[in-house]
Design a protein around this nucleic acid. Structure first.
Length: 486
RNA sequence: GGCGCCGUAGCCAAGUGGUUAAGGCGGCGGUCUGCAAAACCGCUAUUCGCCGGUUCGACUCCGGCCGGCGCCUCCA
């Protein structure tokens, strides 16, 4: 069994073989931090998080780099229009870097909630101007770029492979150019590496070509190669960035270094809202904070992972609701296993051979799904098959070894790889009393029940229910849980 | 106009050239329970948008059609 990934460059699934045995370098295009993250960011970064988690589970030493774009790029196209960050900063009456800091924090806040493991390096574009200029210098020296009126453009006609990622034909691109071509460009398809700053442009830096700001694509080339080398294993991003962003990255990087830039390009598909594209510019973007206000973060995460990363995902309340019910059931079983383990009433003993064999079979199927281009949807399916078996086990006499092996498998697959288990943090001091108090009431109620005083036992249950504590009588005693928030 | 994707049960969603087309939600029936909840068991697509073709055999490959969508302009 080996990991296969869909490489956009090859348009097919390929065996994943890293450049250096045991090590993986991965770069994923990060957010431009000028507003709160939306559900599209959620899908993208949760998807790549699952990949990174799985690679680490496979014992690869992973270096995960994800940039923060804090250099304003233009609202319109790469050549004209306002700077997004400057525009928004003016609107919010903040210093541009203040705005950027605010939304960078907001971004990590939401990602943390979604259980996204932080990248190993989160480089800021504004902190890597030197590296960007270095590449531009190399491109100029090699004749792949030219300077006009204090701006520098990449000369696409000097790079015949331009279009290899997105399948574009240069001639068609020239004909189909919708944007007004700047007179400075020698060729309509050329793209900016460095732009002269107009006097009104706030975000500006000195450079060998005058005061200006970097082009949109150059930062990713600079930061990825800075930390992962001239050639690295995986570059990820949204499908919407395949062209022109990634195409341009490849051209400028490979033209500058003469080396293969990226070996595997992974693109995740986009989010739709009621079947239609969601976009900031379309005004139908839903922020993560909005969704996280209505659904628990793990529910959102499991919803995202319940479809393949290369499929579109349609956000709707009913679909989220379904994901919530399913996750609740999964958690119920995971929790029940742990409760049984800690109940002190478990028989010590060997694990049932047949049961262990079934666990192993589930695990193998799970890994098979993940190996197949990170099929988290299939993997979650296996988790529910596993849950069926574990529930069956819980119906009868389970030994501590049985329970331990089930618990371990959940933690490994659902927890470590998919990040779908609740954090197991100890309760805060005052809260530690709550379970004991509830247990007291449960014991009391059970005394009433033993005496067949159901009127009183129901009163206890109902009153607990009214403050959000739900009781469940099982063959192995009474359990309790907090009611879902309405 | 160019490039590309998708169409699987009421809903969400995997998947495969040929044994019974995952899984989740919902629904129905049952077991358990004082009642309930949860859990468990069973049922819920003779069929994979439509029409042709290739094949011994296609939902899976090819062609056409219908429908939905994306990229080609900032966007995860």
């Amino acid at each position: 069994m080996s990991l296969k990934v869909y490489n956009s460059l090859a348009r097919t699934k390929e065996d994943f073989i890293p450049l250096q045995r045991g090590y993986v370098g991965i770069y994923v295009c990060g957010p431009t931090v000028y507003s709160h993250p939306h559900v599209g960011h959620g899908k993208s970064y949760v998807s790549f998080d699952a990949m990174v988690r799985y690679l680490r589970y496979l014992k690869y030493k992973v270096r995960y780099v994800q940039n923060i774009t804090d250099v304003g790029h233009l609202t319109d196209n790469a050549d004209a229009g306002e700077d997004k960050i400057a525009k928004r900063a003016a609107l919010e009456r903040l210093e541009p870097m203040e705005l950027v800091e605010k939304y960078t924090r907001s971004y990590f806040e939401d990602m943390d909630q979604l259980g996204v493991v932080r990248p190993d390096i989160s480089p800021r574009a504004s902190g890597h101007l030197i590296e960007q200029m270095e590449i531009i210098k190399q491109l100029l020296a090699k004749g792949h770029a030219y300077e006009v009126n204090d701006s520098v453009y990449f000369a696409v006609r000097t790079w015949p492979e331009y279009g290899k990622l997105s399948g574009r034909d240069l001639e068609e691109l020239r004909e189909g150019t919708r944007i007004e071509v700047l007179p400075d460009k020698r060729d309509p398809v050329d793209f900016a590496l460095w732009k002269r700053a107009e006097p009104s442009h706030i975000l500006r830096w000195p450079s060998p070509w005058g005061v200006g700001f970097p082009g949109w694509h150059i930062e990713c080339s600079a930061m990825s190669m800075r930390y992962l080398g001239q050639t690295f294993d995986i570059h990820g991003g949204g499908l919407d960035n395949q062209f022109p962003h990634h195409e341009c990255e490849i051209a400028q990087s490979e033209a500058a270094t003469g080396q293969t830039f990226v070996r595997y390009w992974l693109h995740n598909n986009l989010v739709t809202i009621d079947g239609a594209k969601m976009g900031k510019s379309l005004g139908n973007a839903i922020t993560l904070k909005e969704v996280l206000g209505r659904f628990e973060a793990p529910v959102v995460r499991s919803f995202i992972l319940s479809s393949h990363y290369r499929s579109t995902l349609d956000f709707s309340d009913s679909a989220l609701e379904g994901a919530a019910r399913g996750l609740e059931r999964l958690w119920g079983t995971v929790q029940a296993v742990q409760e049984r383990l800690h109940s002190g009433a478990v028989a010590n003993g060997e694990a049932d051979e047949e049961f262990v064999a079934r666990l192993q079979a589930h695990k193998a199927r799970f890994l098979e799904q993940m190996d197949d281009d990170f099929n988290t949807a299939g993997a979650i399916g296996v988790l529910f098959d596993l849950t069926r078996d574990v529930n069956e086990l819980l119906q009868g006499e389970a030994t501590d070894q049985d329970l331990h092996s089930a618990d371990k498998l959940y933690r490994e697959l659902a927890g470590e790889v998919l990040g779908l288990l609740p954090e197991r943090g100890g309760p805060a001091q005052g809260e530690a009393l709550t379970p004991k108090l509830i247990q007291l009431l449960i014991d009391l109620r059970n005394e009433y029940r033993a005496a067949r005083d159901f009127k009183r036992s129901d009163t206890v249950r109902d009153k607990l229910a009214s403050i959000g504590v739900v009781l469940e009588d099982t063959a192995n005693g009474t359990r309790w849980k907090l009611a879902r928030q309405a």
